[in-house]
């Protein structure tokens, strides 16, 4: 369960988030949709305790990220890049992360297997392709077998096989009762996996609800998106 409650943030005197409020519920894939620079990543970074909100709160299972004990067992996150230092091998990277949350070393090999990187365990992260870096990032997110998954543009850099694999993986995770929140600017991709959709534009939430609700009378989610983000004056609430 993710609760974002009236989060605002100003960066270099520009307000980048205005009272952002939404929820992501267990057992559902929630898509976080918006054009480049709309505030998706900023919102996720605040949710993950990397940045501080100016006001408001972002909670994971009722607690702010920085108050979580062994956070990786509650929430796994995939941000840009692999999150690994280029000189370290994939296994060495996963092992220090495992140690930080008191997880056994064997988890490193287990998650490498899940993302299909077993053969590259001894390779240095700097030698990974973009797609492999994303898989390593996902492996890191899965270490603690968390009940909440937060992914920023998860299909970026993945090949068609990887995209299909990711889609099925996220659907299965939700089916098992996990909370899945993913940001994307790819609407057709999102329309295929999301149960709920949140649309953000210029730092404000402009629509939220189930996929059907947000799509409304429009033919596709994409049409709805353009209708929502082009006309600022007309808001759904």
């Amino acid at each position: 369960m993710i609760t974002v409650d009236r989060v605002s943030k100003t960066r270099s005197r520009t307000r980048i988030l205005h009272d952002v409020t939404f929820e992501a519920r267990p057992g559902r894939v929630t898509g976080f949709l918006g054009p480049n620079g709309a505030g998706k990543t900023s919102t996720l970074r605040i949710l993950l305790g990397l940045d501080r909100p100016e006001s408001g709160a972002a909670l994971i299972c009722g607690r702010p990220y920085r108050k979580l004990d062994r956070p990786l067992t509650t929430i796994g996150a995939l941000l840009d890049g692999s999150g690994a230092h280029r000189a370290r091998t994939a296994r060495a990277h996963l092992r220090w992360v495992a140690a930080s949350n008191g997880l056994p070393d064997s988890r490193a090999d287990e998650v490498l297997e899940i993302v299909g990187l077993t053969g590259d365990a001894r390779k240095r992260a700097g030698r990974f392709s973009l797609g492999m870096s994303r898989r390593l990032g996902l492996a890191t997110a899965l270490l603690g077998d968390p009940e909440v998954l937060v992914l920023d543009e998860p299909v970026n850099g993945l090949d068609p096989v990887g995209i299909r694999w990711m889609r099925e993986f996220l659907r299965n995770s939700a089916a098992q009762g996990r909370t899945v929140l993913l940001s994307s600017h790819l609407m057709s991709e999102l329309a295929e996996i999301a149960d709920d959709v949140i649309v953000i534009d210029k730092g404000r939430i402009v629509a939220r609800g189930s996929l059907a609700e947000v799509t409304g009378d429009h033919r596709t989610l994409e049409d709805a998106f353009f209708a929502l983000t082009a006309t600022e004056a007309v808001r759904p609430w």
């Binding site: 993950l48 305790g49 990397l50 990220y65 920085r66 979580l68 956070p71 990786l72 996150a77 941000l79 840009d80 890049g81 692999s82 999150g83 690994a84 230092h85 280029r86 990277h93 992360v97 930080s100 949350n101 992260a125 700097g126 870096s133 890191t140």
Partner: peptide, 13 residues
């Protein structure tokens, strides 16, 4: 490069 600081802070906030 690689953004290890994110991993560090996500694991140990």
């Amino acid at each position: 490069e690689g953004g290890q600081i994110h991993t560090t802070l996500l694991a140990m906030p």
